[in-house]
């Protein structure tokens, strides 16, 4: 079966959103576009499910929201990363790296034997 887009691993959406917001404040649509472009359309972020995730992260205090005007002069809700969010991002990155290393080690084991 051909797979042109990869489904996200559970829990990685937080990491992607935080990383994306590190570049500056952005609205929900902007975030989904940005992830798409950055991953060269390889990652499949279900657009609607982005919002529950954003609302949860706002409640957790990792990101903060404010209403502003978009490029085409429409009212839009912008999110930006908070200091707590930055710490969380560092943590998420280090988890991710551990995870990747661990998975690579398992894959390498087959090569060595």
């Amino acid at each position: 079966m051909k797979r042109d887009k990869t489904d996200l691993l559970q829990g990685t959406l937080d990491l992607l959103i935080l990383k994306t917001l590190q570049r500056g404040k952005m609205h929900g649509w902007g975030i989904s576009q940005s992830i798409g472009i950055a991953s060269r359309e390889a990652l499949n972020v279900k657009e609607g499910s982005l919002y529950p995730c954003l609302h949860r992260m706002e409640r957790q205090g990792w990101i903060a929201a404010e209403w502003g005007l978009s490029e085409n002069n429409r009212k839009a809700k912008y999110y930006k990363i908070t200091p707590t969010g930055k710490k969380q991002l560092e943590q998420e990155i280090s988890y991710w790296e551990q995870f990747v290393t661990a998975v690579s080690l398992v894959l390498d084991m087959g090569m060595q034997s």
Binding site: G48, Y51, Q60, K75
Partner: peptide, 30 residues
């Protein structure tokens, strides 16, 4: 974290209509 949590819960409970409108507007924008 606690403050933002309380703020969100406060808005959701006591400014229910406003929160609902904002949610709808945000998704419509997308």
């Amino acid at each position: 974290g606690i403050f933002s949590q309380l703020r969100v819960m406060f808005n959701a409970l006591l400014r229910r209509n406003k929160s609902e409108d904002a949610l709808a507007e945000e998704m419509q924008f997308h």
